[in-house]
Every structure is written in C-alpha cells, then in structure tokens.
C-alpha cells in the first residue's frame, strides 16, 4: 500500500467508490416522491409559519416575525438531517441487508459510510436550497447580500454535520428495528420544542433553557441567526450575544463525543451483523406487516 499511494490503495478505491455511491443515492432519492416529501417538509412547515405570522413583528421592533424564524429553521434543518438522517437510514439498511452486503465487500463499510455522509450532506443542502422558495418574500429583511452571511452559513453547515452525523450514526446503531425510527422523530420534535426555533428560548422556564442549550438544535439555530439576522436582533438572545465561541465549543463537544462513540458502536453493530440476523428481522417485519 505504501508504494502504491493512497489513491490506488484498497482504502482509496473504497473512498472513491463511496463518493460515487453517495451521489448515485442522492440522485435516486431526489427522483423518489416519498423522499422528496421528506426533504421539503421543513420548507412546507416554514411556508405555513410564514402564513400564520403574516403581519406580526418581533415585539418592540418592526422586524417581521417570519424573517426571524427563517434562520432558526436553517439551523434546525441541519441538525435534523444530521441526527435523524443517518440513524433512520442505518436502522432500515440493517434490516434489508445493505450493511451486511457492505461487510461482505472488501473495505465495503468504509465505502458505505463515505457514501452516507455524502448523501446526507447533499440531501440536507437540498432542503436548505428549497427553503429559498418560501423565504423569498422575507429576503429584504435578511443579510443575504453580504458574503459574510454565506460564509458563515457554509461554516455552520459543515460544523453542524460534523457535530450531528456521528451522533446520529451512533444512535442508529443502537436501534434494533426500523420501526423504532418513530422514537427518533419523537425525540427530535421534543428537542426542537426546547431549542428556541419557533419562539425565543428565553420564553421557556429556566431549567428547560438549560436543556435546550445542551442540544445542537439551539446552537445551530443561533449560529444561523447570527449569520442572517441584522446585528440589532442580538438583543433577543440570551446574554444579548451571538455567543459564537460557545457555539463552536458546544458543537465541538458533540462532534468529539460522536466521533468517539460512533466508530465503537458502528463496529460493534457491524460485527454482530450476519445473514441469519437479517433473515430474522425480515421475518419480524413480515409478520408485523410494516
């Protein structure tokens, strides 16, 4: 391997195969109606929110409430895609044998994980792009003409995925059936509720604020607000600060925790994966009928 170099090494080949795998699966996903509905869910919710909040302004200002919510939804979409995406996919693909297939292929697990990361990044980016449609009407209120805003959004996107995808994968490897992905949805909704996405976190009781501030949803929302909202809107935040350093710190802790846990849990899960397990789970799915 040493003389052949990384690109022609077996692992290099698997990484390249994984990159194309991610792209192929993204293409399949974006031409699948069921998946598309999933990706436009948040943009649709935002359209609904905009409709209900029409005419309302942030108290004490003439800033549209609808414009205030948009960056929070950007942050939420990143966290949601990063947490729920990999965990639900892992649960499903363990059940249908995709993971076992990867395991039966030389360096197949590496290619599989690279493919998943690419796929999750691309589909999450896609739902952010779709947000532009309902958000078009409030663009004048946001700092979309500043390169700084876009740089920050890209940075938050990357940091957000690093902080959430490994944890999502770790969670997914703990699930024992695809039916349990419902729990993830429920858990995410609860996290979103305490993360100051649709209304300010400062309106929550003190202890819930602490819970919210432990979660990536809050910090990604805050980060996106710092990128897109006018500077004076900082007054509505805790401590009247965008707390960028704290954001990087908390997301960094999540990233480190995920990067430590995910390989251990994924390896454990992969080791246990065998044909009879797949057959057994399939049997269960058949008998329960979903």
């Amino acid at each position: 391997m040493a003389q052949a170099g990384m690109l022609s090494s077996p692992r290099g080949a698997a990484v390249r195969a994984g990159l194309s795998r991610g792209w192929i699966e993204t293409r399949q996903s974006l031409t699948n109606v069921g998946d598309l509905i999933w990706y436009v869910m948040f943009p649709l919710i935002y359209a609904g929110v905009l409709f209900m909040m029409r005419g309302s302004t942030v108290p004490g200002t003439d800033f549209a409430l609808g414009a205030m919510v948009l960056p929070s939804i950007v942050g939420m979409s990143i966290a949601f895609g990063g947490l729920v995406g990999p965990s639900s996919v892992l649960a499903v693909e363990r059940e249908d044998g995709t993971l076992l297939r990867a395991k039966a292929t030389p360096n197949g697990m590496l290619g599989y994980l690279v493919g998943k990361i690419v796929n999750i990044a691309l589909t999450t980016a896609f739902s952010l792009v779709v947000l532009v449609i309902p958000g078009w009407g409030v663009r004048d209120q946001l700092r979309v003409d500043e390169p700084r805003a876009w740089l920050l959004i890209v940075a938050i996107f990357v940091l957000g995925l690093i902080a959430t995808v490994p944890i999502g994968a770790a969670l997914g490897s703990l699930l024992t059936s695809s039916a349990q992905t419902g729990l993830l949805m429920l858990g995410s909704s609860a996290m979103i509720a305490v993360s100051g996405i649709f209304y300010p976190i400062t309106a929550l009781p003190g202890w819930l604020q602490w819970v919210g501030q432990a979660l990536p949803f809050y910090w990604l929302g805050l980060g996106a607000r710092s990128a897109l909202l006018p500077p004076e809107m900082v007054a509505a935040e805790i401590g009247e600060s965008w707390r960028t350093v704290e954001m990087v710190g908390v997301l960094g802790v999540w990233a480190v925790a995920g990067l430590v846990l995910a390989p251990i849990l994924l390896r454990r899960m992969a080791q246990r994966e065998s044909g009879s397990d797949v057959a057994e789970r399939r049997e269960k799915v058949m008998t329960r009928g979903y």
């Binding site: 077996p10 399949q28 249908d96 044998g97 995709t98 297939r101 292929t105 030389p106 797949v278 399939r282």
Partner: peptide, 19 residues
C-alpha cells in the same frame, strides 16, 4: 480485507439496494 476480497458470499434473503 485482502482476505475478504478472495471470498464470494451469497446469503439467504437479500433485499438491499432496491433502488
């Protein structure tokens, strides 16, 4: 992995990669 590359595996009940 080099060892794995020399094996071929056909298990029961695959239904992966449907798309």
């Amino acid at each position: 992995e080099a060892w794995r590359a020399r094996l071929g595996v056909v298990l029961q009940s695959w239904r992966d990669h449907g798309r």
